[in-house]
Every structure is written in structure tokens, then in C-alpha cells.
Design a binder for these strands. Structure first.
Ligand SMILES: [Mn+2]
Ligand SMILES: [Mn+2]
Ligand SMILES: [Zn+2]
Ligand SMILES: [Zn+2]
Lengths: 145, 145
DNA sequence: ATCTATATTTATAATGATTATAAATTAAGA
DNA sequence: TCTTAATTTATAATCATTATAAATATAGAT
């Protein structure tokens, strides 16, 4: 958190209260919030906060490599990940939660090698899995006995 | 092609000229066309073809597992893949082409194992890579000498 | 072949997340 | 404090997709 703020300053970013609020909210976040969720949460303490500013701040943070954007909800809202590092995600079809999928060794997953695949230069990877999360699987098996 | 038609019949699908046209166009396709591209191409021979029917036919083919939909162009148009089997894709940032990325052995890529990862039941996988295709890489290196 | 009920297609409007715009406000530096 | 540039805000525009309802086509029965 402190780090992000420091890096933003280094990059000459004006640290407005709105930008601080978005950055702070995201870095606290353990899930992958949407623009709406971010906006609503900040508005509770900062009623004049506009959704346009949330968009612009997220764009800024993304361009600086501090966060990443996920398009896992195909035509739905984008979600934002305070962790910009390469990892995969699973969208649970029962509860809608988005889980981090980490292959403990990047070497286990060839698309995490980045660099070059099939003669293509690979600059970004988004791997989206769709299925059912452990919690929902448990609920299902409990119901069935 | 003949196979798809046969399977559609088996599933009790009414084979209208419009549905035939979409199915035929897709199965001929070696790339990953958008709704627009499909519509425009069919309209040349079938001027009354509506875009709504392209949408509805694609939905049908997808539900029957004959094609798959890609959301690799994040907030842009969806593209459709006549090959419903699991494989990855790369979107070239220079030319916009979408390439198939095939790891020759599915065992090389753990997210192709499907079944279960990290206690999650995995039902679908979409791996989107972003970068530069071999053709565009060549053009770049040619320019530089 | 004709009729009828059902399914499909078509044109059109509605949706909804995101982006663009321009006026109002704020921040930074002189 | 004053001035200029950057940022925020409210609002409108965009655009792929989905919903709707009337028109048309299909399939099965007569
Ligand atoms: Mn994540
Ligand atoms: Mn493909
Ligand atoms: Zn779940
Ligand atoms: Zn290319």
C-alpha cells in the first residue's frame, strides 16, 4: 500500500483524495471488485465521488502496472485485481465468486513462461476457468447426502 | 460439415436456409469471425439475412457444442470458433488476427487437464494470450534491418 | 395439396457497461 | 495570492448484444 503510493509519486501522479481512495480500497481488497463495487464503497465515506473518476483512476493504475483488469465475466462488468502478477482465475458458476488459481511453480504451466510460444511474442496472458468453487461443491455434496 | 448437419438433425433442429448458411460459413472458416463478418458474408448471397438470426444460430450451435465463443477482444466483438475443442488463442496487437495456440500434448498444459484444479471443478477453459504474431514479428525485424 | 399450429425470422427498440465531452473544481508553482 | 494546468464531475454518446412482437416459414395432419 505504502509502496504503491510511493511509486505513484515517483511517476509524477497527482495524489488526489479520489485516487487515494480507489488505490486504498483496491489494495485492501481480497477479491476482484467491479467498478460499481469500488464506487459504491468509496461513496459511503466520500459522497461526491463520481464513477468517471473510478474509471480514470483504474485506467491509470493499470497503465502503471499496479493492478490488472479481468474480463472473465464475458460480456458483463470488468473486475480489477490488486495483484498485477500473472496468475489464473476461476469464475464459480454457482456463487459468482472469482478465485485465484495459482500453479505453485510457474514452470508447471507453459503459458506462464510468457516470452514466446509457437513463434509468437507473448506480452500478456489471461487464463479464465469456469466451473464450481470448493465451497459450492461442498454445499452440493452435503445436500445430496 | 456433413457431420454437423447430421448432428443438428439428430437433435431435432429445424434446418432453415439461414441456419445452413451460418453453419456452412463457419465450418469453411479458417479464422475466428465476428457476428458482423458472418452476417456480411452471408448477406452477399442472401440479402434478407438478419443479424438477429446470426446471433440466434450461433447461440444454438454453441449450446449444442458445435462451436465455441471467444471473448478475447476484451470489450469488443465476440468471435466464433468452428472448432469447439479446447485450445488456446493469441490476439496479435499489430494485425488483430487471432491465432490458435496448440500445445501438442494436452499434458503439457495443466489447465487443459480440465477436471479439477485447486479443489475447483473446471468445466470450461479460455486462455487468451496477447502479443505479436510471427508474421508481424518478421515485418518488424525486416524493417529494422 | 391445403390447412393449422408451432417455430423461426425479421425489423426495431431496449439494455448496460464503457467512453467521450465540456464545464466546474482543485492542485501546483510562481 | 494568482495563474495555469490537471482533475473531477455530470451528462451524453457509443456500440455490441438482448428483448420484443409482428411477419413469415416450417412440419404434420387432413
Ligand atoms: Mn487475482
Ligand atoms: Mn481457435
Ligand atoms: Zn461458488
Ligand atoms: Zn500480427
Amino acid at each position: 500500500m505504502k509502496d504503491i503510493i510511493a511509486r505513484l509519486k515517483e511517476n509524477g501522479v497527482t495524489l488526489t483524495p479520489q485516487r487515494m481512495a480507489v488505490t486504498e480500497f483496491l489494495s485492501r481488497s481480497r477479491n476482484h471488485p467491479t467498478v460499481d463495487e469500488i464506487h459504491r464503497n468509496i461513496q459511503r465515506r466520500y459522497p461526491t465521488m463520481s464513477v468517471a473518476t473510478v474509471y480514470s483512476t483504474l485506467k491509470l493504475l493499470k497503465e502503471l502496472g499496479e493492478i490488472q483488469e479481468l474480463s472473465i465475466r464475458k460480456r458483463g462488468k470488468a473486475c480489477f485485481d490488486p495483484n498485477p502478477g500473472l496468475h489464473h482465475h476461476l469464475l464459480c458458476r454457482k456463487c459468482g465468486k472469482i478465485l485465484d488459481i495459482d500453479f505453485n511453480h510457474p514452470s508447471n504451466c507453459p503459458i506462464m513462461a510468457k516470452e514466446s510460444i509457437d513463434g509468437c511474442k507473448v506480452e500478456e496472458v489471461q487464463a479464465y476457468l469456469y466451473g464450481i468453487c470448493p465451497e459450492c461443491l461442498k454445499k452440493e455434496s452435503d445436500k445430496k447426502g
